[in-house]
Write a protein that binds this DNA or RNA. Structure first.
Length: 581
RNA sequence: CGGGAUGUAGCGCAGUCCGGUAGCGCGCUGCGUUCGGGACGCAGAAGCCGGGAGUUCAAAUCUCCCCAUCCCGACCA
């Protein structure tokens, strides 16, 4: 492809609204343009990369026995009502009506749609297992689209759904996808960290997220050297739960004017934060509940939500807090039994002589003792694991890293097959309900994550497997004759079967080199001065500074080797540069 | 939805306090000179100053209302 006939609108300056590297570079290198917040147009160069990522996913899915579908993006409300998610999906689902006032959703995910189509097709245990998938656009009315294509309102997702006759089968399907995901991300040149995760509103039990370590990641991960890896949302941690020997003192009420936050309390009472019982009022499905954790801990809202079995959980507004505690915000506590459901963190009962709000303005209790001064009826782990907390498996101290979630695999269980009444006959002619798994990959996000992991101050450094072109040919010709010579080389590279982007523009060499670095094609071939004087072609790998001067014959060999490695699916920069030695 | 910021030429910005001729850099067009790491000269084109209402002789600039975009928190691939 000649640049003069293509569209590569590169920009020297960073766009003002891009903060993270991938977003900046995708716009500067001419891969995407913003249409509106959370909506992006892919330009030809960006679309080529996107297609390469899609192809890798498709190849690996097909290899694993996945069957590719294409589902409608507009889904009937009846489907969602059948599974019960019409009410639970919340405002992130785009809902629309047609001219007859029938309700639809722009699909944010496709469990229902696939379950529906599969149930109409399968009828026997012999039809199972089956793994169906698609690569298609999803719509989510994100509260805040962010970071370019990393989090957008419209995005491409590969979503797969497995149906098995029993849990054993599901385990097999799940493990197969687990392995498939590893190879997909590996082929994309991405290093991923699989972590245990929450299943969110997808339902189900077991789930694992594939994370790309990155400073800009929106998830915090807890990692242990023993191999324990979990999303902070659901990470467990080990706790030494023993009664302290401390003698129980007499409960006292203390005047604490304007002392509301844990920080205030620490300086007021001059003791450590873990002595306080942090008591927070939430609204769980619009009903007030209180959660109590030690003052040095954060409440893990997801754990709390799961404990409560709630669909929606949010901090209660001030007026609700005042109503429930009959005191301003900041003085809640479990002592004189409030009339709300209260969940205590499992560590609370082991805190002697604690300090807590008195449910009265400017008053706190000190020397509060669990069970003596209040009943601990409902207990759960509702604390967030933090950096340095002991690993739940080996008790060693865990570290925290940030990550971008590029893939997520779930064991869904029977949630959809039961709700939507999917059955097949087993060998005894009995009706059984298949069990499901579901497996997603954010395609655009994967692309952005690839850039996040592969760039420098000059631009993108594409892994060979997803580069928009295999070779970037820079021609520096001064006369018509020289132009013709470069063109012959261009034809030769094309004939070798490689995808080549040929910079044939009439601009200065520096301009072309800078653009080549920005666009980031892994192999750059320059035909210029040294060719016209010494018959040597210059080759430069994007990831290194070295410029190699190579004879025409050797270049031909190099190109056919490159071509061969690509078709073997076995190409790496290492192998390519080794070939030149 | 809460908190913060910004909308001026295709892109990046100044001008706004203190009302009075709309500006700079990049890019773009033409001609010429250049030609190995974002070349130079000359000549050009291009802006309802986010939208609406108001104050004023006069508004990019002051007031009010709307809209959009970005950043920080809750949602998620």
């Amino acid at each position: 492809m000649k640049i003069s006939k293509y569209i590569v609108p590169t920009m020297k300056e960073d766009p003002s609204d891009a903060v993270v590297a991938s977003h900046r570079l995708m716009i500067r290198a001419g891969l995407i343009r913003k249409e509106a917040a959370g909506m992006y147009a892919y330009l030809p160069l960006g679309f080529r990369v996107l297609k390469k990522v899609i192809n890798i996913i498709r190849e690996e899915m097909d290899k694993a026995g996945g069957l590719e579908f294409l589902m409608p993006e507009l889904t009937n409300a009846d489907l969602w009502k059948e599974s019960g998610r019409w009410d639970t999906m919340g405002p992130e689902m785009f809902r629309i009506q047609d001219r007859n006032k029938l309700e639809y959703a722009l699909a944010p995910t496709h469990e229902e749609a696939f379950t529906n189509v599969v149930r109409s097709i399968i009828s026997s245990y012999r039809d199972l297992p089956v793994n169906v998938y698609q690569i298609n656009t999803k719509f989510r009315d994100e509260i805040r689209p962010r970071f370019g294509v990393m989090r957008s309102k419209e995005f491409i997702m590969k979503d797969a759904y497995s149906f098995d006759i029993d849990e054993e089968g599901l385990e097999e399907s799940y493990q197969k996808m687990r392995a498939t995901y590893r190879s997909i991300f590996e082929r994309c040149g991405l290093e991923t960290i699989p972590v245990q995760a929450d299943t969110g509103n997808m339902g189900g039990s077991n789930s694992e997220e594939f994370m790309v370590a990155s400073e800009i990641g929106e998830e915090a991960l807890l990692l242990c050297s023993c191999g324990y890896r979990a999303n902070q949302e659901r990470a467990d941690f080990y706790r030494e739960l023993t009664k302290s020997g401390e003698e129980q003192k007499e409960i006292e009420i203390v005047d604490t004017p304007d002392v509301k936050t844990i920080d205030d309390l620490v300086s007021f009472f001059n003791c450590s934060a873990e002595k306080f019982l942090k008591s927070i009022i939430y609204l769980a499905d619009n009903k007030p509940v209180m959660a109590v954790v030690p003052g040095n801990r954060e409440i893990n809202e997801l754990k709390l939500k799961n404990t409560l079995g709630a669909v929606e959980l949010e901090l209660a507004p001030d007026n609700v807090v005042e109503e429930v505690t009959s005191a301003p915000v900041g003085f809640a506590g479990p002592v004189n039994g409030l009339n709300v459901r209260t969940v205590f963190d499992i560590s609370v009962r082991y805190i002697p002589n604690a300090i807590t709000g008195a449910n009265e303005k400017d008053k706190h209790f000190k020397n509060v003792n669990p069970e003596r001064d209040f009943a601990v009826k409902e207990e759960a782990d509702i604390s967030t694991a933090e950096e340095g907390d002991p690993c739940p498996e080996c008790k060693k101290s865990m570290t925290v890293k940030r990550g971008i979630e590029v893939g997520h695999i779930f064991k869904l269980g029977y949630k959809y097959t039961k709700a939507m009444n999917v059955t097949v006959q087993n060998e005894k002619s009995q009706e059984i309900t298949p069990i499901m798994g579901c497996y997603g990959i954010g395609v655009n996000r994967t692309l952005a994550a690839i850039i996040e992991q592969n760039y420098d101050e000059r631009g993108i450094i594409w892994p060979l497997s997803v580069a928009p072109f295999h070779v970037h040919l820079v021609g520096i010709a001064k006369s018509d004759e020289e132009v013709k010579t470069v063109e012959e080389i261009y034809n030769k590279i094309q004939d070798s079967g490689l995808e080549v982007l040929y910079d044939d523009r009439k601009v200065s060499p520096g301009f072309k080199f800078a653009d080549a670095d920005l666009v980031g094609i892994p192999v750059r071939i320059t035909v210029g001065k040294s060719y016209f004087t010494n018959n040597e072609i210059e080759l430069k790998f994007r990831h290194s500074k070295d410029i190699l001067k190579i004879s025409v014959e050797k270049i031909s060999e190099f190109l056919s080797e490159y071509r061969k490695l690509l078709s073997d699916g076995n190409v790496s920069i290492q192998k390519l540069s080794d070939f030149l030695k």
